[in-house]
Design a protein around this nucleic acid. Sequence first.
DNA 1: CTAATGACTCGAT
DNA 2: AATCGAGCCATTA
Length: 110
Amino acid sequence: MFDRPNFFQDVHEVAKLIPPGRVTSYGAIAKYLGTGRSARMVGWAMNQTLVDPAIPAHRVVNRIGVLTGKGHFHPSSAMQERLESEGVKVIKDQIQDFDKHFWDPMIELG
DNA sequence: CTAATGACTCGAT
DNA sequence: AATCGAGCCATTA
């Protein structure tokens, strides 16, 4: 158990801290953790969160607000559905007013 | 053990 | 302004 690096745990914690109706990017989380450009690992960590419904992975998108990870959801459309359900408009897998809904852990948390 | 891939991002051309 | 390449760390083959 917990063989995974603390990095994954931190990503999970930050992901849980994302408030409803807000979104963030992999790089933002990676930066907050200090890993910097290891945004890929954040995405990988999110993949592990799929088993944990308490982690809103649908609130995490790439830097331009595109639902790059929608294909990893059970119904690939669930990601967009949930985001819109929280008041986030998503068109063509792209979040509208991304900068407006953007939630930066560095600013909000730290 | 080496090589390749991935829910990404930045810098250079 | 748009496109290409390199960097990041962990997992799988």
